[in-house]
Amino acid sequence: MAAGGDHGSPDSYRSPLASRYASPEMCFVFSDRYKFRTWRQLWLWLAEAEQTLGLPITDEQIQEMKSNLENIDFKMAAEEEKRLRHDVMAHVHTFGHCCPKAAGIIHLGATSCYVGDNTDLIILRNALDLLLPKLARVISRLADFAKERASLPTLGFTHFQPAQLTTVGKRCCLWIQDLCMDLQNLKRVRDDLRFRGVKGTTGTQASFLQLFEGDDHKVEQLDKMVTEKAGFKRAFIITGQTYTRKVDIEVLSVLASLGASVHKICTDIRLLANLKEMEEPFEKQQIGSSAMPYKRNPMRSERCCSLARHLMTLVMDPLQTASVQWFERTLDDSANRRICLAEAFLTADTILNTLQNISEGLVVYPKVIERRIRQELPFMATENIIMAMVKAGGSRQDCHEKIRVLSQQAASVVKQEGGDNDLIERIQVDAYFSPIHSQLDHLLDPSSFTGRASQQVQRFLEEEVYPLLKPYESVMKVKAELCL
């Protein structure tokens, strides 16, 4: 049975990233139509530049190519590739079939990587351009969430054990800070992308030097003109047959890092959902379990974690691919890159769409948070109580021993009897502590235990987050809708 299948058929496997999760716009960027249309555009740009620099290419040939950029006979191309065992030459023939007058000058002087690699770089750039505003929107939604809850005390956790208090907004800023680093890295790697350009079979530009009869300047002009037509500021000066596969490492490393950030955020949300302090959106008709109707599973956060793990592992592909590119190139890269580049971007696209949807509907339960604080705060307040007693004339050592005994009794009630923490009640009825009984409410005010959390939130948002989001103001209103 021949390899390949009808990918629109229910009898043929289709990647869930495309069929179930990723956005239509990201799927289109990695589609065959987008790819092969870009090949034709690159052939047109090459012909236009070659004509401008004096090669015998007519206006009629150029116009014929322009008129057929979208006229792609995919069936013919597939048949040609089956016959020739070469995808680029299959599309040269297919393009030439609908451009008979231009057929002889299509791909003039070029090698397969002229269309293959340059198209990949265009796709990487455009895919990054799709991700950047999506990530900015996630940051914006979380920034709104953090600002609104900047002063809401909550129990902090280290080692997932109760620690000092923080605020809900401050905790959210930990998430935002990681995503801001990801946004900066995505922008950097996007701006650092260079075009492969017009380089020939081993990167020496020998074929173009021959076409222009040894004119170095025209060869350099050709490279520059096509690079500018493709919208790049610069091209690699040095290439082998391909652009260095280190570029793929750079791009997928940034995406993998984004995956790590999203995994951490969504894990926190899942843990908070278990504590009943916070939940992701839950639709009115949504079913959490087929057997347990009360369940409210954090399905979206779980999906993000599941896909983020996949995204983090994909960076190993370009690392290994770059390491086995012998001399000017081997074909070890080809099949692998067809999979890992598309999957990385479709996965990143999915987790950003999902995280935006989550961040637009996060639900906080202040009463649950308050109750958990009441359970733990008495123990945390013991040092403040000791200091207040010393100020009232008591002995630190005597007070410490009193607190120690009462704390152990209260802990026994919590752990052995399943009761509430009654340390404060014990202190309130103990005559030894009568000098500070009137101060206990103040000493137990949760806001006095959150330090500068709310001020940190305000400063972080104003100095770091809002300036970073400013270039994306025009796209901030787009909502994230999930079908599944």
Rank of each mutant, 00 (worst) to 15 (best):
S474M: 14
F28N: 07
D216W: 09
A308I: 02
P293L: 01
I373K: 01
T354F: 05
E462L: 13
C173H: 02
V92D: 04
T204N: 10
R396Y: 05
I105A: 13
V405R: 14
A2V: 06
Q397R: 05
F74R: 11
R459S: 12
Y466D: 13
S261T: 09
F236W: 13
E302V: 00
C180V: 12
I385L: 14
L84A: 10
G200C: 02
P281I: 07
N126G: 13
L352C: 07
H400D: 01
L341R: 08
S140K: 14
T330M: 02
L174I: 09
W326S: 04
Q177W: 12
H159A: 00
Q205R: 00
E417D: 09
D349S: 12
L46G: 02
D215W: 07
L53S: 09
C99W: 01
T354N: 09
T321K: 00
S412W: 12
F232K: 01
F212L: 12
I403L: 05
R296K: 05
L443R: 04
M76D: 12
D268H: 08
R194S: 12
Q161K: 03
K264Q: 01
P467C: 08
L155M: 04
E81S: 04
A102T: 08
A103C: 10
W326H: 15
T58H: 11
A163V: 02
N357S: 13
S334W: 01
E80K: 09
V92Y: 02
S290P: 00
L121G: 07
L272E: 08
G288H: 05
G288K: 03
D317V: 05
V390Q: 10
F145R: 06
S9M: 15
A260L: 04
K264T: 02
D192C: 12
I57E: 01
K82F: 09
H7R: 12
K295L: 01
L108D: 02
T267E: 03
I238V: 11
E328W: 01
D333C: 06
K199E: 00
F327P: 01
K224I: 08
T244M: 05
T354G: 15
S253Q: 11
P153I: 10
A335T: 11
S301D: 08
D73W: 08
G419F: 06
G4D: 14
A206L: 09
Q205D: 02
A335Y: 04
I238G: 06
Q416I: 09
K415R: 07
G231Q: 09
V478A: 14
V457S: 05
D349Q: 10
L258Y: 14
R452F: 07
N71V: 11
S454F: 13
C305K: 02
R190T: 13
A78G: 10
S301K: 02
S412K: 14
T201V: 08
D32A: 14
N297G: 01
I269H: 02
Q397T: 11
I105T: 08
F327G: 09
I351Q: 03
S454G: 12
G393H: 08
L346M: 14
L482V: 12
T204H: 06
P16T: 14
D430G: 06
R85A: 01
Y13E: 09
E60N: 10
T347N: 14
K229W: 03
Y294T: 02
F232Q: 01
V198T: 13
R404N: 09
A163N: 02
Q241R: 03
V429R: 13
R329S: 01
F345M: 10
S301T: 10
V465L: 12
A102K: 00
D398E: 09
S12V: 11
L271R: 02
K134F: 06
R338D: 00
Q205F: 00
I62L: 13
D192Y: 10
D430Q: 11
T204Q: 14
A256C: 07
K187A: 15
G203S: 02
S359H: 14
F74T: 14
Q241C: 02
D117I: 00
D422G: 08
D420H: 11
C305S: 12
F195K: 01
A77D: 15
S306A: 07
L314G: 08
K224E: 10
K295R: 00
G109Q: 00
A348V: 13
W45L: 06
L55Q: 14
A322N: 06
K367G: 08
K415I: 06
I72W: 12
Q409I: 05
S323K: 03
N71Y: 12
C27Q: 10
W39E: 06
V138E: 14
E417L: 10
T58R: 12
Q458I: 13
E360W: 01
K233T: 08
A127I: 02
T204Y: 03
N421P: 11
F36K: 13
F157C: 06
K35Y: 05
R188F: 11
S306R: 02
C399E: 05
R85W: 11
Q41D: 09
A150V: 07
P162I: 05
Q375A: 11
Q41A: 08
Y294G: 03
L352I: 13
K224N: 09
P446I: 05
N353I: 11
L443A: 05
V414C: 05
L42Y: 02
E80G: 09
S140P: 05
D87F: 00
I265G: 05
G240D: 02
I287N: 06
E48W: 01
R171Q: 00
D6L: 06
L193D: 01
Q356R: 07
A344W: 01
R303P: 00
K233A: 11
F74A: 11
R459D: 09
S474R: 15
L258S: 07
E80L: 06
N353G: 11
G109K: 01
W45S: 13
A392I: 08
L46K: 01
G231N: 09
D216K: 05
T166Q: 09
G393Y: 06
L440P: 06
W175Q: 05
M26K: 00
T450G: 04
L108P: 01
L346P: 05
G96E: 11
P153V: 08
I403G: 05
L46T: 01
Y114P: 02
P298S: 08
F74G: 12
R374L: 05
G259W: 00
M476K: 15
D398C: 11
